[in-house]
Amino acid sequence: MELDNLYQEVILDHYKRPQNKKLATIFDAQVHHVNPSCGDEIDLNLLIKNEVVTSITWDGVGCSISQASVSILTDLLIGKSITEAYAIHDNFVTLMQSKGAFSGDESVLEDAIAFAGVSKYPARIKCALLGWMAFKDASVQAQANLN
């Protein structure tokens, strides 16, 4: 079924068993992002040590796409250098904005490649990007706080 391209197994798994969904008390930056068109919300706490993404924790409400996306993001980015994390971030954003023309680089995106199908559903792209935009915002703030 066409819909299975959107709701990949990994996405539904992360939705049902979200990773790092408990806000840590130690962080450099804390952000709250909402998707005003559907009401999805997340809080995200980020800790960066020695240029390495040390902890990303979050809490939120929303659809499977928005919630799985942030869960997969945490799995993928924790332990990466901030430069690597940004590269992955850029790759993900490009994939989402590709209208299906770009299939994404699986070696970079790992499980996040599962969102490739989302780029064909314009109304859902914002859902998939919610956590990624929150991460970017938090990392900019965290680095500003460090300097």
Partner: peptide
């Protein structure tokens, strides 16, 4: 949002959100 997407795949247009 997920239910709405599923219904859409069956040709059914509903609104979801607030």
């Amino acid at each position: 949002h997920d239910l709405g997407q599923y219904l859409d795949s069956a040709g059914i247009a509903v609104r979801t959100g607030h």
